[in-house]
């Protein structure tokens, strides 16, 4: 018996998969499109903030407390004061 799998639980996997698939369903934004958006966005941001690590940029569709969908972007600027 695979205890590790059991303790993890398939319900959590179901929930995560649903949340992802519903984003594409609701906003009509596929994971591939989000990747594209992320790449293009980081190109633009890099023009202004060349020191940014584009791998750290995170874009996701999330839900606010009143249940509206929103596009959330996180762009860590590091410790700053470098310039």
């Amino acid at each position: 018996m695979n205890f590790f799998r059991r303790s993890k639980g398939s319900a959590g996997v179901a929930r995560d998969r649903l949340l992802t698939v519903l984003v594409s369903d609701r906003v009509k934004l596929t994971p591939a499109m989000i990747d594209n958006l992320k790449r293009e966005l980081s190109e633009v941001i890099k023009r202004y903030l060349p020191n940014i690590d584009s791998n750290m940029i995170d874009i996701a569709v999330t839900q606010t407390e009143d249940n509206t969908d929103q596009l959330e972007t996180r762009i860590p600027l590091g410790r700053g004061r470098k310039a």
Partner: peptide
């Protein structure tokens, strides 16, 4: 309870 089905809250 065993985490193999989504709960009502989920």
């Amino acid at each position: 309870k065993s985490g193999e089905m989504m709960s009502v809250d989920d």
